[in-house]
Design a protein around this nucleic acid. Sequence first.
DNA 1: ATCGCAGCCTGTACGC
DNA 2: TGCGTACAGGCTGCGA
Length: 287
Amino acid sequence: MPELPEVETVVRDLRAAGLEGRTIRRALLHWPGMIDGGDAARFCRLVRGRRIRAIARRGKFIRFELSGGWTLLAHLRMTGQFELLPSREPRAPHERAALVLDDGRELRFRDTRKFGRWQLVRDAGARLARLGPEPLAPDFSAGRLQAALRGRRGRLKPLLLNQAIVAGLGNIYADESLWVARLHPARSAGNLSAAELRRLHAAMRTVLRRAVAARGTSLGDGQTNFRGLGERRGGYQRLLRVYGRTGEPCRRCGTAVQRIVLAQRGTHFCPRCQILGRRAGCGRTVR
DNA sequence: ATCGCAGCCTGTACGC
DNA sequence: TGCGTACAGGCTGCGA
């Protein structure tokens, strides 16, 4: 499930593979539905002949800055993967699109479940303006997190998944961050103490930094799992504390990790380390 | 503002 | 073994 660390890994891999500076000869869209806005022909026409000037990440979006002021925004959603292969390589299963480059290679996009999206925009800033702050940016302080949560009455986990609050967290790293911060996922965000806020802020950054260093999380080994460019798997699955560990002992206290559904998402936490505050619920430890 | 749900998809895991 | 069903989840859009 590509979240911030996985998307960051892909961006770094693409840069390291020398994609910046290459020119797009043409685009192939095997599944036109992946173009946001739906106009696949327009996409192909507009992208043709443009140079990839830079590649960057914003939240879970990959930004390809193209010549002529256009930006290709790519979102991997659940199962999107990029590959950079020689043009002679046969098309892989679930390949949805490719950008034919000027050096004999193609940037290929595989996406088993067809959730991924590409969008060509003039003003990427406007499109990305709804995203909240970057949690790993140097200026993302506890105060900025507090400002982002100010006035919010919702529960912590749904808010952490809301990309307008903070950009880049998904289900895995939201659960992991809350465990590190020792905060219950259903805890009301509106009444965090200053200390709890600092804990949450530090936890998010620690978890995300370590996950980036580990090149993200690769669960299982089917084709729906995350890989960086090529076959290299991430390593953070070995460091997961609660996600996917239902019934296994908490790494802090040994209590069985519990799974509940919050905001329609599987949510993993330690019922002993992460207790609900008095105002958020019934005031007792959830079993 | 917040919540829950449907929809988009398909591989995988499960029960029978 | 084979079938059917539930489930996984990022994001959007809808209605409450």
